[in-house]
């Protein structure tokens, strides 16, 4: 009896059992997140965002971001991080630095570094216009004449931003950065915070363990190694059991 308890096979059985129990929770978590990540497009995980304040705080998104804002007619154009807004309506993500915004009779023009964005009266994107040179500011004079200040010159467009000519700097009302009214600022901060982390990103961080930093990655790596050991010990136990039962059957017949 004493020998049986100390047998290496009994030790293997015990090791297999406790290894399985130890990593079962992590393996279930990896399986669930893995299945979900396989269906990112089907379940629109990259276009649905985490809204939980706890998770957002865990990511360190609990502080308000700096807002750049410009008044264009009755509307406010603002930018947080790389997301731009028309009042509270989200416009384009990953936008370069917003340098100004103006309103003409026909549309709104937002100036970013090396890009202009044309908007309709209700904030619908009409066209994105890339420029070769960096824009420093945008201004307007008479209706439909849009001015941009580049590195060493000022250019004007009279045809809805299709072509540009050099122009003198006289009588142009340049767009100036203006502080956003507090209620609007709070609303944009709240909206912005809830549109940063898609479910796909959260699941990827959970699956890889990165959500918990280096410790999380270490635990996931360790679970992988333990799973390999578990598979090997499982196969070993099965082979031994099979050989033993064959030998036992031979002795019977």
């Amino acid at each position: 009896m004493k020998n049986a308890r100390k047998s290496p096979w009994r030790l293997l059985y015990k090791l297999h059992r406790y290894l399985g129990l130890a990593i079962s929770v992590i393996l279930i978590l990896l399986a669930i997140t893995g299945i979900a990540l396989n269906h990112t497009d089907d379940w629109q995980l990259n276009s649905r965002y985490i809204k939980s304040p706890t998770v957002l705080n865990w990511y360190g998104l609990n502080r308000p971001s700096a807002i750049r804002s410009f008044k264009a007619g009755p509307h406010w154009i603002s930018q947080l991080d790389q997301q731009s807004y028309f009042d509270t309506q989200a416009l384009i993500t990953n936008s370069p630095l917003l340098v100004g915004a103006i309103r003409t009779e026909a549309f709104f023009v937002l100036a970013f570094e090396k890009q202009l964005l044309l908007l309709s009266d209700n904030g619908t994107v009409i066209e994105k216009i890339p420029l070769e040179q960096a824009i420093h500011s945008i201004g307007v004079t008479e209706p439909d004449s849009v001015f941009i200040r580049l590195d060493s010159q000022i250019k004007v467009s009279h045809d809805g931003l299709l072509s540009w000519q050099s122009a003198p700097d006289s009588g142009i009302q340049w767009s100036q950065e203006t502080a956003l009214p507090e209620p609007l600022s709070d609303q944009i901060q709240q909206t912005h915070r809830q549109h940063i982390i898609p479910y796909e990103r959260f699941l990827l961080d959970l699956h890889s363990g990165r959500l918990f930093g280096e410790v999380g990655v270490f635990i996931v790596d360790l679970s992988g190694i333990l799973l390999i050991l578990l598979t090997v010990s499982g196969c070993w136990i099965w082979i031994r059991h099979r050989i033993k039962s064959r030998f036992h059957n031979k002795r019977l017949y």
Binding site: Y59, D205, G213
Partner: peptide, 27 residues
């Protein structure tokens, strides 16, 4: 904890820009 949050936020915000590559200008 603070460095973990900074890492997560930085990775989140900069990932799209790391891959942005222009091969030829419009002009």
């Amino acid at each position: 904890m603070k460095s973990l949050k900074l890492f997560l936020v930085a990775a989140l915000l900069w990932t799209p820009l790391l891959y942005a590559e222009q091969y030829l200008s419009e002009a």
